[in-house]
Amino acid sequence: MIRVAVVGTGGISPMHIEGLLNFQNRCRIVALCDIYPEKAEGMKEKYKLDCEIFNDHQKMLSSGVKIDLVHICTPPYVHSEIAIYSMNAGCHVVVEKPMATCLAECDAMLEAEKKNGVVMACIAQNRFRNSIYKLKKIAESGIAGKIRCAHINSHWWRGHSYYDLWWRGTWEKEGGGPTLNHAVHHIDMLNWLEGELPKAVTALLTNTGHDNSEVEDLSLAILTYTDGSAASITSSVIHHGEEQGIELQCDNAKISAPWKIQAEISKENGFPVTGGNQALLNEIQYLYDSLPDLPYEGHTGEIDDILRALEEGTRPLITGIDGRKTVELITAVYKAGSRREWTVLPLQKDDPFYTFEGIQKEAIRFYEKKVSVENFKPDSITVP
């Protein structure tokens, strides 16, 4: 039985708690921790948990309560601190997105994992969506050909009041806008699908509708790869309709999530034949339909994978290395957008954007955050 603590009981924590409760024969929640302990008490009551409540992760880990695994669901600026402390205490950790606010923090977390012989997993639950899992399988099969151009649309919408929450909308606490906190999942998926980081990135950062926030509410990035292929990423909290998607333009066909396929075939003059390559379309669709659904999706699917890794002594699908790659690409977008230049990857340790302090110094501040509320009333959220 794996004994679990959840640190941070805000909007994302129900996804973790509900996921864990799907596997009560394999794990048990023994502690909840929040700097607002009344929020943790509310979660304990809501889910009828038999667990201890703490207002500080250090107190929790020194309390004598036996804990094997710590789920970190706090704002990003304390992810590394809590993860490293937990791993130094001998616990495995699951870190919500993003892994950390900078590469220096990511590297310190990876070092703590190695030093303590524990496992660190990073949340990127969309890899456990049937649409994304099957897209990956189709891409890997080679049936559509090599990826030549990828379009990533991380389109979300958040009202003006979203950035009133005390830690949101500041570089110091949130670490960035939708590029870091919403598109993080789509950027992880892009890295997963491509199998590598791009060689260079350029980007535009702007804030078009949230004058209570220092950070961007929209970024547009262009990526180039060593083989000459390219990708675009739109990261937004200004898009009505909240329509996210991944489109892979491959040599032989377009494949995308939500699932859609198109495949052109050429006339003698180079123009497309009406109806496209129907034989290939049928072949791709047959392969897609033959793929079994995942037993669990989203956070529940990833938690199942993490528990299995701990039970079997293997590695989870999404490791700290994966989390770091995502943070590196996001950091490259911020550097390119802040300096209005092409940024070459990999980023080096002497790069100003490698550290939290360097990002704070260089980042564009679009507006001064003047309004701050301590907490919103409990309500549902939409999850990237």
Rank of each mutant, 00 (worst) to 15 (best):
E172S: 13
E264M: 09
I84R: 00
L280G: 04
V201G: 01
G145P: 00
I29F: 09
S256L: 04
D350E: 15
R339Q: 15
S232R: 06
A332L: 00
C106K: 01
F271I: 01
V327C: 05
L61T: 12
V344C: 07
V78L: 07
L135N: 00
G159A: 00
K97Q: 10
F23D: 11
K254C: 10
K146D: 11
I255R: 01
Y163A: 01
A263Q: 01
D68R: 04
A221Y: 07
I29L: 05
A104V: 02
T224K: 05
P258W: 12
K335N: 06
V383E: 10
A150C: 14
N282F: 05
T9M: 10
A203V: 01
D322E: 15
I233G: 01
P272C: 13
I364V: 15
E113N: 02
V7C: 14
G11S: 10
C33G: 07
Y334A: 06
K361E: 15
Y36L: 09
S256M: 10
V65I: 12
S13Q: 12
Y36C: 03
A89K: 12
T234K: 07
K361G: 07
L190D: 08
I265P: 00
N207G: 04
S232Q: 13
E111T: 12
I364F: 07
D34N: 12
I143W: 03
W171S: 09
P98I: 12
V327I: 15
K267L: 13
L347I: 15
E111R: 08
F271T: 14
I364T: 13
R308K: 14
T226Q: 09
F353Y: 15
K173Q: 14
Q58I: 11
L197K: 06
Y296H: 07
E214W: 04
E174K: 04
P98T: 14
I132G: 02
Y47F: 13
L307M: 08
Y77G: 00
C106N: 05
G8I: 12
Y85L: 12
A104I: 01
T202R: 11
V344W: 07
A124C: 13
G301S: 05
R340L: 14
L218R: 06
K370D: 09
I147A: 02
M189L: 11
N130M: 02
S86N: 04
T355P: 00
Y288L: 01
Q278C: 04
A309N: 08
R315S: 14
A89E: 10
A121V: 02
H185Q: 06
H160R: 10
V373E: 09
A31G: 06
H79S: 06
D351Y: 00
L20G: 05
E96L: 04
L281W: 03
K48F: 12
A144I: 08
C149Y: 15
Y334N: 03
I17V: 15
G313L: 06
T208W: 05
M189H: 03
I359E: 00
W192F: 11
V65Y: 05
C33E: 15
L193A: 00
N130R: 02
T382G: 03
A231L: 04
M189C: 12
T206S: 10
P76K: 03
I123P: 01
K199C: 13
I152K: 04
A112T: 07
H155I: 02
I84P: 00
A5Y: 10
L223S: 08
R340S: 15
I284W: 03
E357T: 10
E105N: 06
L317Y: 14
